[in-house]
Every structure is written in C-alpha cells, then in structure tokens.
C-alpha cells in the first residue's frame, strides 16, 4: 500500500517496528563494533604470529592489549543497551575503531614483521609504546617545560594584545601612535626575532616567552581592535540614553560586542605561538618537546621522535579544545558557532 492516512500510521505504528527484520537492526547497531573487534584481533595476531625483525621488548604486551581492546569493542557494542551512555558513545565511535585497528595491523606488518618500510626511520607501534614506558620521566619533564613556557607566553601575549586592541579601537590618540608600530612589527614572523631575542634577553626562557607573547599578541590585537571598531553605533546610543558612563560603554558594550572577534584572534594566536614554541625549543631552550625532538634526532632515536610528535599533537589539540570550550561558555548567546 503506497498511501496511508494519519490514523493508519497511528493504529499500526507499534507493530510496524517489529516487522523490521531483527538481523538488520542488529547489524546496523552492532555491526561496526563486531568489525572493530575483528580488526583489533587481526592487529593482535599480527603482533604475535610472526617473529619481529628487530629487537623490541613490548611486542607481546601490545598483542595482548590489542586482544583486550577487541574484547571491549565486541562486548561494549553488543551489550550497549546495558551500558548506558558509555555504550552509546562506543557504538558511535566503532567505525573509527575499525579504521584504527586496520591501520595498526598494516603498520605492524609493514615495519616489525616484513620491514617493507626502511627500518630505523619507520619504527613499529611497539617501539613507540616502549618510549612511553621506558622514557616516561624525560618525556613528562619535556611536556611540563613546554606547557609552562607556552602558557606563560600565551597568557602574557593574549592579555597585552587584548588591552592594546581595546585601546586602539576605543581611543583615536592611542590608535595614532600604536597603529604604525603595529603595522611595522606585527606582520614580521616572530621567529625572525629569534637570534636577536636570544642575545638581548637574560635567559633563553625569557626570550622564548617574549617571542611566544609576540606571536600571540599580534592577531589578538588586530582582531580585538577590529571587533571594537565594528560595534554598531546604535548600541552606544542605546546605552547612552539609558545613562551609561564611558567606562560602562567600554566594559559592558564594546568588549562583550567584540568578544566573538577576540576569540578568533586568540585561536589564530594559539596556532602561531605553537610554531614559535617548537622552534624556540629546538634552537635555544634546553627543555621541552621541541628540544626532545631535536635531541632524539641527534641520537637517531626515531621512535622517540614519533612518540614526542604524538604527545605534541595531543597537547596542541587539547589547548584548542580548551579555548573553544571557554568560548562556547562565554558566547552561549551566539547561535550556530563552529564545534571543534
């Protein structure tokens, strides 16, 4: 029957659902989870079946861990109904687990087992796991040093950039003096200052903080400025007729109205400050993930480099996630913002 009225649908609504073949429904819900489990079993087998071409101590543990993940994927998705939101989340991510398992299997075979990729440059997964277990203290020290340097420089740069941007946007006199300086210095990549900064600052740490602040400050300044400058005059008129003083106009009208722009600036500043951080650590600072990368390269410890790269990417991504979370909180009034 190709047509039916509303009352038909209401009357036969409940039995209609049960007519859907159970198998199809099951495959739709749990198929990806089962496939993920298969992929991870394949990865586990690829670890344990053949002998390694090199000397790695974590192959067995990795294989067992793969089987554990396979089991979690299988029971987690099949029994998702009993696991609540955790089961739902697992079901949603199951296709990614399939892809990840397949990728790791190919990686394992191409490196540790058959050496299709040239060896020291392309280490197998277990070599990277080995770095995380055996070189953890040094890696953690590096993470801590990087976070400290980045956070200090970024916060200083963001604060100075924000205040400068608001001042230029608000006061014509400040704009007259600061704008030319900004145009002259701003577009210069902060890394170009590296040699001079390392000479003129008392320590490589303070020099790097300055450079990170510089890289952050420029986009934050320009976008805050443009945000404040583009606030509709009508908002000021409204506030003035309601008895607002100049300080109220700046703090309660200009700044909140400019905030969406400010966050674009903070996002751009974060990106460019990461670049400066890594370069500064590679060249001058004797700590941090950039330095760790450089050090690993010196010793041809390629698995350490990959391990550090993965950590670095997690940190950068985490920082951006944090920034977006703060933005979403402060800008709830906006509709249709980008989800990170």
């Amino acid at each position: 029957m190709s047509t039916y009225s509303l009352s038909d649908g209401l009357a036969s609504g409940a039995p209609r659902v049960s007519r859907v073949p159970l198998l199809t429904a099951w495959v739709k819900d749990s198929g990806a989870g089962v496939l993920a489990s298969v992929a991870w079993i394949a990865f586990g087998l690829s670890c344990l079946w053949w002998a390694d071409v090199g000397d790695w101590s974590r192959t067995r543990s990795l294989g067992i861990a793969a089987f554990v993940i396979a089991a979690v994927a299988l029971f987690g998705t099949v029994g998702a109904d009993y696991l609540g939101s955790a089961g739902k989340a697992l079901q949603k991510r199951a296709p990614w687990l399939v892809a990840l398992g397949a990728f790791l299997t190919v990686w394992e075979l191409a490196t540790a087992k058959f050496a299709w990729l040239p060896l020291p440059f392309f280490p197998p997964p277990q070599a990277i796991i080995e770095v995380y277990t055996d070189d953890l203290p040094k890696l953690l020290d590096s993470v801590f040093a990087s976070v400290k340097l980045q956070l200090g420089g970024y916060l200083i740069g963001a604060a100075v950039g924000f205040l400068t941007g608001v001042s230029i946007g608000w006061s014509r006199a400040v704009g007259y003096w600061v704008h030319p300086v900004l145009r002259f210095i701003g577009p210069l990549p902060a890394t170009a200052w590296l040699p001079i900064a390392f000479f003129t600052f008392p320590s490589s740490w303070s020099a790097s903080t300055f450079l990170i602040a510089l890289a952050t400050g420029f986009p934050v300044t320009v976008l805050t400025w443009s945000g404040v400058a583009s606030v509709s005059k009508a908002y000021y008129d409204v506030a003035r007729t309601l008895g607002a003083k100049p300080s109220f106009l700046v703090l309660k009208v200009a700044i909140p109205a400019a905030l969406p722009h400010v966050f674009v600036g903070l996002f751009m500043g974060l990106g460019s400050s990461f670049a400066v951080l890594v370069v500064a650590e590679m060249i001058g600072v004797k700590a941090g993930l950039g330095w760790y990368l450089q050090w690993a390269q010196g010793w041809a410890a390629y698995s350490n480099m990959y391990a550090a790269l993965i950590v670095m990417s997690l940190l950068c991504s985490g920082a951006i996630t944090l920034l977006f979370a703060i933005r979403d909180r402060l800008l709830v009034w906006q509709k249709g913002t980008v989800k990170w």
């Binding site: 509709s232 009508a234 908002y235 008129d237 409204v238 003035r240 007729t241 309601l242 008895g243 009208v253 909140p256 109205a257 905030l259 800008l331 009034w333 906006q334």
Partner: peptide, 20 residues
C-alpha cells in the same frame, strides 16, 4: 546630553545580543 529621564525606543529593537 542624554539622560535616563528621556529614553528612546528605536526602529530596530537594538537589544544587546549577548544579554538575556
């Protein structure tokens, strides 16, 4: 100068979008 004893309602409501 403006004073809250004389308040304007404009053609556009010009509500502040960031305020409830």
């Amino acid at each position: 100068r403006p004073h809250p004893s004389r308040v304007v309602v404009f053609q556009d409501p010009t509500l502040f979008p960031w305020r409830s």
